[in-house]
Design a protein around this nucleic acid. Structure first.
Lengths: 350, 350
DNA sequence: TAAAAGCGTGCAATCGATTGCAAAATCGCA
DNA sequence: TGCGATTTTGCAATCGATTGCACGCTTTTA
């Protein structure tokens, strides 16, 4: 490998001059600069980034900690982060931690030891807030729960708004009997989406019914099971809003099972706008989760922190990103008489 | 930041001793070792990996170049690579190159400059073979085309076997009129899958029919369009095999459009086993692409190269990984009389 | 014409950890 | 008690690039 010393020798100058010339330092005469550049080129010189970064005490890299990049949504976050970083001249190093706090801690330590310039923690279910600060690295959180008082930067998707918008969209469609199949009760996002749902109902003076609220486990199967309960009840809803796309697909299965047509007899909405929403039949109406933007924002926020002050200071920067209703084929305006449909359902179940 | 010198001072020993003690070098007396470890712990010592790697001329990192990790399949590759690397004590750095050869070149250079120990190039459409070797980095390719003579390591999914297995599976189901909707003609994987298809037909002495072979563009829409042509022809196939899941879903749409039931009237197969295959209705029978395993193998192969010889030597290590038929709900045994169905189709289209 | 200012370059230290070699300390055994 | 053998430890160089400071030379200014 050729180093600046080799170039210095070839050029008959000192390594210091070579270093400055290659950095286009104006202190070096134009003639020398050009000559050195030429020689470096000829000799196939490549800077040793480890040496440089070591000397500079900074690696120009930031770390992204995620549970699993191969998940579609995390992948979008990674892309967004990467794009933002690129603009600032940083490189991204990803570590999957698979919901394992030990691995997460290891990753954070590694990033610190590598003199990374910052860390982004994407929606792990873990609570590493206690650990990161002690590494003295600038960091920002994505979709993690933290109280508004925590002195950290965080960017989140607006779950409240998502729940609200979805519900209001269904109300706009004249639905009044709107059921909600939520995620597990102890998930932060579940709680927020539920709040949005009830808020929207309240705003439009629609009674809140406990029997229209169910808690699933995010999986298709639970959506199916809970929707079956809803559809077979005495007073079935005319629209079902599920807290993610997988459960929504379960809801559609349940509707089919009960002989209900989607969207003619029941409207169904999902949440997340994953690829499966587009490929479901009928195509699923859902709420988009702008993960790419979220990643970008987190990336920019981090770069900004690095550029100026450094550490997460007293101010809690809380950025909320709002998704949109993605209107597809599982929702339709409510029409008065679903009687035929329910008869069909009975026939079907006989 | 506390360095080994700080520890040395605190312990009243030399930095050399501290370095060795922390590395558990048996040359250092047990007593000293333990004392130094304790002091290091107390002082919150963390090794500076940039310094270490710089000295060692190796970063213990390998780079993964992929078009886009947020793609489900690339994501699986990344996970596999990461797992393999973890076992060997390496860390993975991912760079998305988005099918851009300039970015790819930049990424390769960056990896070289960072003194990475190796590179894995995952299915980019580009031909960087000319560039990588000159960086003198060990590397392995994933799903890239290269002739058997190239002196490099490569791991691929076995497209030929996939095409063959899918076709044979349909033949097993007594289908004789099997159409194939391929990807673009100039894709290596398209060609191989097609060869597998024709080979399987030949093996079972089923005539090869040019009108049963179509070329799509991987997207849903092209599957739909081409399947429509097939179903409306004079002699429609009883089974359609599409070269990926997206097109297969288009095929199902086309079948529905023609009043054909899947799988009762036509069987449909996809390829890739993406998440959408599981969420399609009916659930799509398809060929799995064991990307996780592929990633693992590539990771291990690279680590092996790094561990022993280094550079890709004369021997071309070509590993083929075979997918499996994932049997779901879009395929069924052929039954003699689909006449009713085609009448329905005509009614439907009137 | 001498002093001041400016330009271009080199010296040498530095970042933190590792490691070959030599020196010092300890031990064993006669 | 003494000397070689063995165990522990330290010295100093090294990896490659960067940078504060100073030196020498040229140009400008008074």
């Amino acid at each position: 490998m050729v180093s600046i010393y080799d170039i210095a020798k070839a050029a008959g100058m000192s390594a210091a001059t070579v270093s400055r010339a290659l950095a286009d330092n104006p202190k070096i005469s134009r003639a020398s600069r050009e000559r050195i550049h030429r020689i470096a080129e000829e000799m196939g010189y490549r800077p040793n980034l480890l040496a440089r970064n070591f000397r500079q005490k900074s690696s120009s890299m930031i770390g992204l900690i995620t549970d699993d990049v191969s998940d579609e949504l995390s992948g979008m976050i990674a892309k967004g982060v990467e794009q933002a970083l690129r603009e600032h001249g940083f490189t991204m190093l990803v570590r999957n931690v698979h919901h394992d706090s030990e691995i997460e801690q290891e990753a954070i330590d590694y990033f610190g030891d590598m003199q990374m310039d910052g860390v982004i923690l994407a929606d792990s279910t873990l609570d590493a807030l206690a650990d990161v600060p002690k590494t003295k690295l600038p960091f920002v959180l994505i979709n993690r729960y933290c109280s508004a008082e925590d002195p950290i930067s965080i960017v989140c998707t607006d779950d409240f708004a998502g729940g609200y918008d979805a519900t209001e969209y269904l109300i706009q469609l004249k639905h009044r009997k709107i059921a909600y199949i939520n995620g597990p009760e102890d998930w932060y996002s579940s709680i927020r989406r539920l709040t949005g749902y009830t808020e929207a109902l309240g705003k439009h003076e629609i009674g809140y019914r406990a029997d229209y609220i169910k808690h699933g486990n995010w999986f298709e199967d639970s959506g199916y099971r809970l929707a079956l309960e809803l559809f077979r009840s005495d007073d079935p809803p005319t629209a079902v809003f599920a807290a993610n796309d997988m459960m929504a697909i379960g809801v559609i299965d349940a509707a089919r099972e009960c002989g209900l047509r989607v969207p003619e007899d029941v409207s169904v909405m999902g949440y997340d706008d994953r690829t499966i929403a587009k490929y479901a039949r009928p195509r699923l109406t859902t709420i988009s989760l702008p993960m790419f933007e979220v990643g970008m924002m987190a990336g920019h926020a981090l770069c900004e922190m690095i550029a100026k002050g450094q550490m997460p200071d007293g101010k809690s920067d809380r950025l909320l990103v709002r998704g949109k209703v993605i209107e597809r084929d599982t929702t339709a305006p409510y029409k008065a008489e679903p009687t035929i449909a329910s008869e069909t359902a009975q026939d079907f179940n006989k």
